[in-house]
Amino acid sequence: MQPSLWLALAGAGALISFTPGAGAINTMSNSLNSGFRRSIWGILGQQAALVVHIVVVALGVGVLVASSPVAFNVIRYAGAAYLVYLGIRQFLQKPDLDQETAATLRNEPAFSMFRRGLWVNLLNPKAIVFFLAFTPQFIRPEQPLLGQYMILAVTVIAIDILVMWFFFAAAAKSFRRFTHDARGQLILNRTFGVLFVGVGVLLALIH
């Protein structure tokens, strides 16, 4: 891949990553509940989903999903329902200042965070459609495809990890002061609950 093309890819990848969405909300929620360092597990789960999306597009399956209203809608509504479920669960979570309970929340298993991040990004058919439109701009059919897809995947994923961890997860640290009292916890739980539900509803409604 030519340096100029790679720079364009990096710029586009950064713009995509900085665009707020379900992944950013999930990352900030993880950072608040489990801490900045451990939020990386949810971020890695989201990247695993991006790898799946890129592979799906590279294999041509993405074209079939995008062109099949039934398949697209099944994935779309499943993703929307999952986000709404996460939102309702967060919204209804009661404030708890007990040290033992707080420690349990902060020690959520890494795999649990990874799995949630995976499903948040995986159940988003818009990502497949986006990569269908995004990928061809940086792939040259006359050149070996495997190397190009690997460069694209590594670039997009590396940028997304940096943005999610050092921007969204770090930004959530500024809200930690709200977790020290019940009212602050309630505000955060309801705020992130509404955000999750809002993104889920938008995913279901926007065509």
Rank of each mutant, 00 (worst) to 15 (best):
M1V: 14
G13C: 02
A14V: 06
F18Y: 15
G21S: 12
M28P: 02
S31R: 10
N33T: 14
F36N: 03
F36G: 05
R38F: 06
S39V: 04
L44Q: 01
A49S: 04
I54A: 08
V55L: 13
V57A: 02
A58F: 08
A58T: 13
V61E: 01
G62K: 06
G62M: 03
A66T: 13
R76A: 10
Y77F: 15
A81H: 13
Y82V: 07
L83P: 01
L83D: 05
V84P: 07
L92M: 15
K94L: 15
R106V: 05
R106G: 01
P109D: 11
M113W: 01
F114R: 00
R115H: 12
R116F: 00
F138M: 06
I139F: 03
P144D: 11
A153T: 15
V154M: 02
V154L: 07
I157T: 02
A158Y: 06
I159C: 06
D160N: 12
I161M: 03
M164Q: 12
F168L: 00
R176W: 01
T179G: 10
R183M: 14
N189K: 08
R190C: 10
R190W: 03
T191R: 12
G193F: 04
V194N: 11
L195R: 07
G200M: 10
L202H: 13
I206S: 14
